[in-house]
Amino acid sequence: MSSKGFYLGVDGGGTKTTCVIVDTSRKTVGRGVAQGSNKNSVGNEVAQRELMASVELAVTDAGISFDEVSSACFALSGCDRPDDVSLVTSWMKKALPTHVHVWVYNDALGALASGTQGVLENAAVLISGTGTIALGVDSNGQQIRAAGWGPLLGDCGSGFDVAQKALTASAAAHDGRGHPTALLPAILEHLSLERPEDLIGWVYGTPGWAHIASLAPIVFECAARRDAVSEQILTDAANALARSVSAVASRLRVAAGSTQKPPTPSAARLSLDAATSKVAISEEHLDRQKERESVPQSSPAEMPFTLVLAGGLLGEGSSLEQVVRRELAHECPGANVVHAEVEPAVGAALIALNKYNALSDDM
């Protein structure tokens, strides 16, 4: 099988869609960005349009033709079931030249690959952005996941979850049903709204979930000012995220007797929003974590695995990330926690490259 030399990766989320093209040396040569492509949020027609828009922009940026693309990997939010995969695969096979090999996965696989150089085994990823998911892949390629059910079914620990709880707490504070919080005036100021009642039109007047999740940084800002309600929201988010990883780790089985070590990529130098990186989590919570860590733990059932942290709420060095790490040290001591070395779209492109090379080896 002869190589055309270029590999396409797409990271499609609820807010934006990014396509990256890499060459055989794994160097990024093209990039394109379009609007959100989660079909559950924007619908099939818009999702298909934005996916192709990002691809066309990346191909143009790379200065190549579609005929030079060997394979493509689409890592997409909202693409969870076999029917979803089949549908998107059919879209892309019709849109791309027939020689291009197409793989479609949930966007969690792209994020995982961004921390493992495209390797999809003995590893897991925890994402917290607009949504959240924990997903692991064992040495046999079997996927195990937890969370990622979407806003109406939980998504605890996601940007939407954090922001929705902030809105709920703000409404309760205004009514006198909840504790006073700095969240209400901060949200009103951010949205340029005059009255708390104006939140109703803002919340329900825009379709989708991204506009709700966009308020999550305000919770970090208020927590940094020691607002108790905001601190509790973020503490609950950290606990929920750690439980998702624990649920995956409990089912993640590495081949018996395997001596293969998980990949240990260096941590990325991620640029973080200042508010996110300075969250103040309650000292009482940290004290409880220290007490738990002082208790001797039994050996974990699973062998060590790499855990990639990804998403805007788990930036390297943030206090939320630190609390998640503390929880994981207790619940999943086998986890080797790292951050992404590259963006998820590049991770998807590396999956496409690795998959294509595997096909070539089988020929």
Rank of each mutant, 00 (worst) to 15 (best):
G5W: 04
G13M: 05
T15A: 15
T24R: 15
N38L: 00
S41G: 01
A53Q: 09
I64Q: 02
C73W: 07
C79Y: 01
D84M: 00
V88R: 11
K94F: 03
V104G: 05
A113F: 00
Q117C: 07
A124T: 01
I127E: 13
G129Y: 06
T130F: 00
W149H: 13
C156D: 11
C156R: 13
F160P: 09
Q164M: 07
Q164S: 06
G176T: 02
H179G: 02
P180E: 08
P180N: 05
A182D: 12
L184M: 13
L193R: 07
R195P: 04
P196H: 09
I200K: 10
T206H: 14
E221K: 15
A247I: 02
L252Q: 09
R253P: 10
V254T: 14
G257A: 07
R269Y: 03
T276L: 15
T276Q: 14
A280D: 09
P296I: 14
S299E: 12
E302Y: 03
F305H: 12
V308P: 04
S318E: 04
Q322Y: 09
V324E: 01
A335I: 07
V337R: 01
V338R: 15
V338F: 04
H339Y: 14
A340T: 05
V342I: 14
L350E: 12
L353H: 13
K355P: 00
